[in-house]
Amino acid sequence: MENKVAMVTGAAGGIGEAVVRGLVERGVTVALVDRNGDRLEEIAKELRNAGGRAEAFPADVTSSTDVEDVVDAIEQQLGGIDYLVNGAGVLRLGPAKELTDQDWSTTFAVNTTGVFFISRAVVNRMVERGRKGAIVTVASNAAGTARVDMSAYAASKAAATMFTKCLGLEVSKYGIRCNVVAPGSTDTPMLTALWSDGDDSASRASIEGVAEVFRVGIPLGRIAQPSHIADAVLFLLSDQAAHITMHDLTVDGGAALGH
């Protein structure tokens, strides 16, 4: 992976930041993309000070114009993109019948349309250059397992998952691989923001399960760390996964019972 160029969306924290750090450790030049420009620059500066190659590119993945502009800027400044990680995501909770128009549209704008905009922009440039590459979309185990209060999120992740697989089928002839990593409960700001009852009780509920909402626990008995998800992403980007495409790798400690 050394001397390759990667673009990571959702890079300002959580799983995206863990992926960025893992890539930089492997000698990859990384373009960090997120709407949180201040945090992006903090991470990029820290990595550069440690000898890594990382640059911040603030952008809104829900804007096709923004996406085309930022991909052009990345390739002009860093070179052609070899790896793309679609890590940007939002979560809007609530019963399906109570979700607002804005809840639904925002969820799909980031989690699904953003994946489409970014992937299209990167793939078109890969194909034009005749360059092989690898794309990983970070989805969710909720894409294949029904969850109470998560209809918009689950539906958006299911759509992003199938889009990524269809894209993988279409671009396989160019040597471009497209895969999905589906995390379960992971210790990120997205999860901990939901823990209104305190860390211990909320994390215990995730691990042990909640019968009244038809949610099984986590058989391995722990919440994932962002690095666990990042390791799976890095594997699918690497040459170790050279013959893997259109695959959905679930990393949830068994919470979806292998589905």
Rank of each mutant, 00 (worst) to 15 (best):
M1E: 10
E2K: 15
V8W: 03
T9P: 08
G14P: 06
I15A: 12
A31T: 00
L32Y: 02
V33D: 07
R35L: 14
D38C: 04
R39Q: 15
L40T: 09
E41Y: 09
I43Y: 07
A44Q: 08
E46A: 15
R48C: 15
R53I: 10
E55W: 11
E55I: 02
V61L: 09
S63Y: 02
T65W: 14
V67P: 06
D72N: 13
A73L: 10
Q77W: 00
G80C: 10
G80Q: 14
D82L: 14
Y83K: 03
Y83D: 02
L84W: 05
L84P: 05
N86E: 04
A88F: 11
V90E: 02
L91W: 10
R92C: 06
G94Y: 04
P95W: 01
A96I: 09
K97Y: 09
D103H: 12
A109H: 02
A109T: 02
N111H: 02
T112Q: 05
R120T: 12
A121M: 06
M126K: 04
V127P: 00
K132S: 15
A134V: 04
I135N: 00
I135K: 03
V136T: 00
G144R: 13
R147W: 11
S151Q: 05
S151P: 01
A154S: 14
A155D: 00
S156C: 06
K157N: 01
C166I: 01
S172G: 15
S172K: 13
K173V: 13
Y174Q: 04
R177L: 06
R177Y: 05
V180D: 07
V180E: 04
P183R: 04
G184M: 14
D187W: 14
T188P: 03
D200A: 13
R204D: 06
A205I: 05
E212K: 11
V216S: 13
I223C: 05
D231Q: 15
L236E: 03
L236R: 09
G254R: 10
H259Q: 14
H259W: 12
H259E: 11
